[in-house]
Write a protein that binds this DNA or RNA. Sequence first.
DNA 1: GATATATTCGACACGCTGTGACGAATATCG
DNA 2: CGATATTCGTCACAGCGTGTCGAATATATC
Lengths: 238, 238
Amino acid sequence: MTTDISAGSGARRGRPRGTSARELELIALRLFTEQGFDETTVDQIAAAARVSRRTFFRYYVSKSDVLWNEFDNEVESIRRLLAEMPDELPVMEAVRRAVVAANHYRAEDVPELRMRMNLLNSVPELFARAAIHYDAWERAVCDFVARRSGQPADSLYPLAVGRAVLASCRAGYDRWAACADADLPVYLDAALRALAAGFSDDVIVAEPEPGSDGHLAGTRARRSGRDRRSPTAVETRG
Amino acid sequence: MTTDISAGSGARRGRPRGTSARELELIALRLFTEQGFDETTVDQIAAAARVSRRTFFRYYVSKSDVLWNEFDNEVESIRRLLAEMPDELPVMEAVRRAVVAANHYRAEDVPELRMRMNLLNSVPELFARAAIHYDAWERAVCDFVARRSGQPADSLYPLAVGRAVLASCRAGYDRWAACADADLPVYLDAALRALAAGFSDDVIVAEPEPGSDGHLAGTRARRSGRDRRSPTAVETRG
DNA sequence: GATATATTCGACACGCTGTGACGAATATCG
DNA sequence: CGATATTCGTCACAGCGTGTCGAATATATC
């Protein structure tokens, strides 16, 4: 999206930047959480970063896009992981492994992620704008499926798979953010396994939450699901 | 959403309405198509309906919501159809039947639907705002799955199913809108059957598109790796 | 028919978003 | 030092969305 300036030989030519997309994202996240999205103006974000309002819009095209800096960068990670999957693997198996592998966050990043997700699910404007960023993510999966199935990327099945995979992952994300007592990959793995099983009745009825024996290695079973109905879950965006 | 005024005994009390949500939707659809979304101001829509700009915002909370009058009304239709499904049916089978049954449009409504979908996929702001309206649709499916599986509606599987079902349907919608040579239900049925089959490899590789017309998937099979996306498909919303 | 009540509309003001234009500021390269 | 490249700040502006308040126009009641 933005021009890459990090790498390269030495310093660039002109005036040095007064801030960064990442810094603006962090400031915005803090202000949105403290005083709400609608109550936070772009001027406030810019002032906190000691730049002008106009400069903010040079880093992000809109106020609603400011929380997506990290996410956009990870789409490339998904593409790379998918490309590295062996051809022998079934498509959905490869997709699940790639997605799960791409979502191992460090523990210290979890609080930020949860704040961000709570905002995305509670502020309609952010919730809506998310669709644009999800689109690139969907395309990464869609392109992979198209290549593996020999179909054009705009045909029915690749399109459906790309979107359905993201849909399932978002369910996993939301559940994880609501009661983050287990690792995110566990939720994603469960959601994508259910998808690959076609959400058949015998799969749906069982609660897979990490209390049961996780299919995933490294996750110890704990906490029998009495964490139901957290109010922070997907709710109230009418 | 809006207060129901259609039914009831006789006329209401106060000043009669100068327009309707439906009329504004049609005017907006025409203007958006003729001169573009960004180039159309709310004042123009309001003027074409012979009302003030303020009145427009009493019918729709935002310019981006003006195309969703019909869709929002159909969510109730989905809920009703799902509630009428016999309990013996597998969940995904019931969902597929209900969704397909709810999408039999009359032939004379097809041009409007196609114009609307082309706008939704080409205008970023409309594409984003769609998520808010899809949310109610997803919840209808989610609530049904939750009831049938005995799980709370905010747990992982109902959430994943609701979103994945919509995701598949959107793929069907888009393909249908791109080359509407077959009926919409055919595409939805194919997409939802593929979803219920877990997008397994043997299902994905076969092109199910009906009629197999020229500009559809291009051909019957193969069409190897390098697959560019059709320009009419979901595109350019950066 | 006159008055009360309910509902919608129009007009106005206002803050905020997002963009275009243009010169100033600050770095490197020759 | 001058030329060049890049970013920043300021200003102006159109458009969106909201709050407010009185006017318009229907029905209900006397």
